[in-house]
Computed example of a mutant assay.
Amino acid sequence: MNLALAISAAGLLIAGCSGSDGDGYTTPSSLCGIDVPADALEPVLPDGDSISASPTSSAYTKRCRLLIDAKPVFSAAVEWWGSSTTLQRVATDAIGVDPFDRATPDHNYIYSSTGAVGSVDCPNQKDLKGKIYVSVRTADATTEEKMKKFITSYSASVASSKECTRKWGQAQ
């Protein structure tokens, strides 16, 4: 596939756009097929003229990287972990967040100004034989509160998506 076609296809994956955020691009209302509130995503993205998405998947991870002006600036992932995995363990492996960063009182989210991890509460979690977590990171620091708003919104979006019924452990 040539580069122009690949970029066009990636642009289609961030379909469903919200209103303009004052930059040269329109903030997407989905990240590679997962709906996200634009009012949660827009504050964690930098200014720029154009935006595109680059999705990747493996047996246990679905990642969506956003590129602004052709530079990777944001990454969001949905990850399947073993049922005994803790949020702190996920934060240990995540980029942009540390297990000792701020946590919500319910201990479902850990976040910093550059990244966050969260637990996904799937309605049929018992059928997964594991646990789904989300992680995000940004190249440009934002505020902890903006990152917290995004990770909680993204986690809720994943919980209502097909990711909760996906057959994890198989390449997608």
Results as ranks from 00 to 15, higher is better:
Leu67Trp: 02
Ala103His: 04
Gly169Pro: 09
Thr152Trp: 03
Asn108Met: 00
Val120Lys: 00
Glu145Arg: 05
Ser29Trp: 02
Ser52Leu: 06
Ile132Thr: 04
Ile110Phe: 04
Gly33Phe: 08
Lys126Asn: 07
Ala59Ile: 03
Arg166Trp: 15
Asp98Ser: 12
Ser75Asn: 13
Glu79His: 01
Ala70Ser: 14
Thr138Lys: 00
Ala156Val: 07
Ala156Asp: 07
Ala139Trp: 02
Gly22Leu: 05
Leu41His: 04
Met1Phe: 13
Val117Gln: 00
Pro105His: 03
Val97Lys: 00
Gln88Pro: 00
Val136Gln: 04
Ala9Pro: 07
Lys129Asp: 11
Ala141Val: 13
Val90Phe: 00
Ala38Glu: 12
Asp106Cys: 06
Val136Met: 09
Asp35Phe: 11
Asp49Arg: 13
Thr138Val: 11
Ala70Thr: 08
Ala6Ser: 02
Thr143Ile: 07
Tyr25Thr: 04
Phe100Met: 11
Tyr133Arg: 03
Leu41Asn: 03
Arg166Ala: 15
Lys148Val: 06
Ile14Glu: 11
Ile7Trp: 11
Val73Tyr: 02
Gly118Pro: 02
Gln88Asp: 09
Ala171Tyr: 11
Ser57Thr: 04
Asp35Ile: 12
Thr61Pro: 06
Ser75Thr: 15
Asp35Thr: 14
Gln172Arg: 13
Asp39Ile: 14
Tyr111Gly: 00
Arg89Val: 00
Pro55Val: 08
Asp127Ile: 10
Ser20Val: 12
Ser135Ala: 09
Leu3Lys: 14
Gly118Ile: 01
Leu13Tyr: 09
Val44Lys: 03
Gly169Leu: 10
Lys146Ser: 01
Ala59Tyr: 02
Ala77Val: 03
Asp69Thr: 09
Lys162Asp: 14
Arg63Glu: 14
Ala94His: 08
Ser161Gln: 10
Pro105Gln: 11
Glu42Tyr: 04
Phe100Gln: 15
Gly24Cys: 04
Val97Ile: 01
Leu31Val: 15
Ser112Asn: 04
Leu12Phe: 08
Ser57Met: 07
Ser8Cys: 12
Gly82Phe: 01
Gly24His: 02
Ala10Met: 05
Ala76Phe: 10
Leu67Tyr: 07
Ser30Tyr: 03
Thr142Val: 10
